[in-house]
């Protein structure tokens, strides 16, 4: 009977990703390509990170600080990867623009750029969810459920599904913010993204405290909502500005 539960957890974790894919990404082939590339990028970054950390793991002490260091280095590394991804994208964009000039077609417009960054972010988020949540969910389709001693109110699978959902939102929309920030050379946006990433990651340490998951998971959702809101405002502003410019010109 817990096929229902397993499906439910999977939908909580990946339902919004599916909606974004079906509603936006799947309509344009180059967005699908971007999504796949981004997923691959994220996975490679994960392999490199795990290769480095392999030496120090598993952490035998019960202290929380090794996990904090782990989080700090990993966030730093992944933000670096984001920059690399941006450079790569920029090069492609230049190539595409020059190609478009040659065949006298219009260049990439602002919405196209934003859609590309959305697909890139979704790639990161989906890779995260599939890797860290979906793979863990397989036992949830069985008869049993699982509760962790320190989190006796929520099933382990629900915690991991909610965390996955939170990070999906954060990854997806912070990519739009970051790309826009690089494009506009706007310092505040460039800083906002790593800070949100770090805050969300550190927040998961709350789960280590007894009963912490009841506080930790909603807080993560709040961070996700804040990211979404910030992104929306930014997109709104850019589109209005562009509209103005076009109007005035």
């Amino acid at each position: 009977m817990t096929v229902a539960a397993g499906l439910g957890y999977a939908l909580v974790a990946l339902g919004p990703a599916f909606s974004l894919f079906a509603g936006v990404v799947a309509r344009k082939p180059f967005l699908v390509l971007t999504l796949l590339t981004s997923t691959l990028f994220w996975l490679i970054s994960l392999i490199i990170l795990s290769g480095i950390w392999r030496v120090f793991l598993p952490i035998r002490s019960g202290a929380w600080w090794p996990y904090a260091i782990l989080i700090l280095t990993s966030v730093a590394f992944q933000e670096g990867i984001r920059l690399v991804f941006w450079r790569l994208y920029k090069k492609t964009e230049e190539m595409l623009d020059s190609f478009a000039d040659r065949i006298s077609k219009p260049r990439l417009c602002l919405t196209d750029k934003m859609l590309i960054s959305l697909a890139g972010g979704l790639g990161h988020g989906v890779a995260h969810a599939v890797f860290f949540c979906l793979s863990l969910l397989t036992p949830a389709f069985g008869r049993a459920t699982f509760y962790v001693e320190k989190c006796s109110r929520m099933p382990f699978f629900l915690v991991s599904a909610i965390i996955s959902l939170g990070f999906l939102v954060i990854h997806t929309f912070s990519m739009i913010i970051a790309f826009n920030g690089y494009d506009e050379r706007k310092r505040s946006d460039q800083v906002f993204v790593p800070v949100v990433h770090l805050i969300a990651s550190v927040m998961t340490l709350i789960n280590l405290a007894p009963g912490g998951c009841v506080i930790g998971t909603p807080l993560l959702c709040v961070v996700g909502a804040v990211t979404l809101q910030y992104c929306w405002q930014m997109v709104w502003r850019r589109l209005s500005e562009q509209q103005h410019r076009q109007f005035s010109s």
Binding site: P58, G62, V148, L208
Partner: peptide, 29 residues
């Protein structure tokens, strides 16, 4: 008991690393 919770945490970030139970050596890898 704590191991799965650490796994939940790792789900956030890096599950490939084996999370460890505090205290004893039981791991959930």
């Amino acid at each position: 008991s704590t191991a799965p919770l650490l796994a939940a945490f790792a789900c956030v970030f890096l599950a490939v690393f084996p999370p460890v139970a505090s205290g004893d050596a039981a791991t959930l890898e």
